[in-house]
Amino acid sequence: MSDFNLNSKSFYTALNSNKLIGSKCNKCGKLVSPQRSICPQCQSNDVEVVEFSGKGELAAFTVIFVPPTHMAEAGYSNKNPYCVGIVELEEGSRVTAQILDVDVQQPQNIKIGKPVTMTIIERGSEDEHHKYLAFK
């Protein structure tokens, strides 16, 4: 039994414990992160929370030069852009996450298919920080 339930908010509760969770369908075997109470492949509700390895590869990405407010508060700007992308996890599911340790000034050198590993980051404004999923 996992410490985390299937509610969508548990994804962030788990990140606070430095864990990437998803769900496993006991009927068809489908693994998906974030976790679902109903299997997106076979619609079974015989699903349970499992921990994912945090390994995967980059499936798509962008380098953001015009950040939204919450990323601007974290220090990003057109002078200090950041990479965000979609990672295909080795379990088969895809997740959205910030991508670290890539050359954001030369985005054409960032390669789709690049192997990446999960890391948990903290961002936020001066008075409030939260944990987020990232890969490097």
């Binding site: 798509a60 962008t62 015009v66 959205t96 910030q98």
Partner: peptide, 24 residues
């Protein structure tokens, strides 16, 4: 807004990510 926006995506960003996938 629960999973895509906190990661740092913006609307131009979503289409830009599709663009990198398309170019690749």
């Amino acid at each position: 807004t629960q999973f895509e926006i906190p990661a740092g995506f913006t609307f131009p960003g979503f289409y830009a990510a599709m663009a990198t996938s398309y170019l690749h």
